[in-house]
């Protein structure tokens, strides 16, 4: 089982990102579940959402305690939240950032998703949309296939700018 924990702020689309990743994994022929932790969240409050991907049906509903991958859509949440909590020793980190150092001993990937969203005019209510481009990054990292990433995006968000943003993230992520 491959487990992902996504950190974001309310309104940034972390919950939808989890759903998109699960849908892409499902289109890859895997079983997947996506769920957020619902607190009394408001716009701007730190939010956590989860994705599980497996070859067998998933029976676990409890939260993910030791993820394989931590995705941070807004690095400012790291000031108040320990995003590495429980991350497996061999687990990796993805940051929405133009530059990044390795975090701890973890393999750390980064793409400037915010820049990609702004370049593609993917902005809703003043917030750049991060949840469609992040699928491109995860496809490059091998979590999902790029074909399924695009399929999932076009199923949920037919506007082509979303698929284009994911393609750009795929190109920009350095392995």
């Amino acid at each position: 089982m491959y487990e992902i924990r996504i950190h974001s702020r309310g309104g940034q689309g972390g919950v939808t990102a989890a759903r998109l990743i699960a849908l892409a994994a499902f289109r890859d022929g895997k079983y997947a579940t996506a769920f957020p932790f619902y607190g009394a969240e408001r716009r701007g409050a730190p939010v956590v959402s989860f994705v599980r991907i497996d070859d067998l049906p998933i029976k676990i509903y409890s939260q993910i305690a030791s993820p394989d991958l931590v995705v941070v859509l807004d690095s400012s949440v790291m000031d108040s939240v320990d995003v590495l909590h429980g991350l497996k020793a061999e687990g990796s980190v993805f940051l929405n950032a133009a530059h990044s150092e390795s975090i701890g001993d973890h393999r750390t990937y980064h793409v400037d998703l915010t820049g990609i969203a702004l370049r593609n005019s993917l902005v809703v209510a003043g917030s750049p949309i991060l949840n469609t481009p992040v699928l491109g990054a995860l496809a490059k990292m091998g979590v999902i296939t790029v074909e399924s990433a695009k399929k999932a995006i076009s199923e949920m968000f037919p506007d082509e700018r979303n698929t284009r943003a994911a393609e750009e993230a795929f190109q920009e992520l350095a392995l």
Partner: peptide
């Protein structure tokens, strides 16, 4: 069905 745990969880 369980609130959030199932009502808001995505599965196939």
């Amino acid at each position: 069905l369980d609130g959030f745990t199932l009502s808001h969880t995505f599965q196939s």
